[in-house]
């Protein structure tokens, strides 16, 4: 069905999407908490910064990543010198690009979920003897689960589809950074790449659809679990 080269791209896409989501989810949860529940001077700035990757051209995001995290970038040179971490041309770099681009979507989904949690329930839990952390873990977090799930789905979907930032930041290296969108892009530049582009397009659709179905299923189960059904 698929050529080895295409399988590589598919497997890479899944890996990148999984890890990008895995790392960005806790950070997104923390940022959403700060944005939804605290107020401090400069909060507007943080708010803007978080949503910046959403409104900037993805190529600009990729270029900024290159400038900061590239081999001689502001942060990148120390990453290499101190930890031996190289992001350029690597899967780790592709994962970073996907995570950064999907971050605002994830934060937004989680933030909406957080704002939908009835604070009266949290107050009730506190009158029953639960401290703040206890309340968060036993009341707030479980009630946010549907939102966290939809945030994760958005992150996976956007990571699977990430193109501009990835190609600008970590280029188009087979087996390292050539995810499905990049492979399709490459295929369209090859004289006989139409079939490959088409096959990968089908794979994209199947993946996207599968993710949606899975999310739908999980969402219904979670909603029943948190008593909203």
């Amino acid at each position: 069905m698929l050529t080895p080269e295409e399988w590589t791209a598919v497997a890479l896409s899944l890996r990148v999407a999984f890890w990008a989501t895995f790392w960005s989810l806790p950070a997104a949860l923390a940022v959403a908490l700060v944005l939804a529940r605290t107020s401090f001077p400069g909060k507007g700035l943080l708010d803007g910064l978080v949503y910046l990757p959403l409104v900037l051209p993805k190529v600009v995001v990729g270029y900024l990543l290159l400038v900061m995290l590239g081999a001689r970038g502001l942060i990148g040179q120390y990453l290499d010198a101190w930890f031996g971490i190289r992001l350029i041309f690597t899967t780790a770099g592709a994962t970073v690009a996907a995570a950064v681009v999907s971050f605002p979507l994830t934060v937004n989904a989680i933030r909406l979920a957080l704002e939908a949690v009835d604070r009266g329930l949290e107050t009730a839990a506190r009158t029953l003897g639960a401290g703040r952390l206890d309340v968060f873990l036993t009341i707030t977090l479980p009630l946010m689960l549907p939102g966290i799930l939809s945030g994760a789905l958005l992150a996976i979907a956007s990571a699977l589809g990430e193109f501009g930032a990835t190609i600008t930041f970590v280029s188009n290296v087979e087996g390292q950074t050539r995810t499905i969108p990049l492979a399709i892009y490459s295929a369209t530049h090859m004289p006989d790449g139409d079939a490959m582009a088409l096959r990968l397009t089908v794979v994209s659709i199947v993946l996207a659809f599968g993710a949606l179905l899975l999310a739908n299923l999980a969402d219904r189960r979670i909603r029943r679990l948190v008593g909203r059904a």
């Binding site: 009835d118 009266g120 329930l121 107050t123 009730a124 839990a125 009341i139 479980p142 009630l143 679990l225 948190v226 008593g227 909203r228």
Partner: peptide, 9 residues
């Protein structure tokens, strides 16, 4: 509370 506020989950 007036509205019971039972934990739905």
């Amino acid at each position: 509370f007036q509205d019971a506020r039972l934990f739905p989950h």
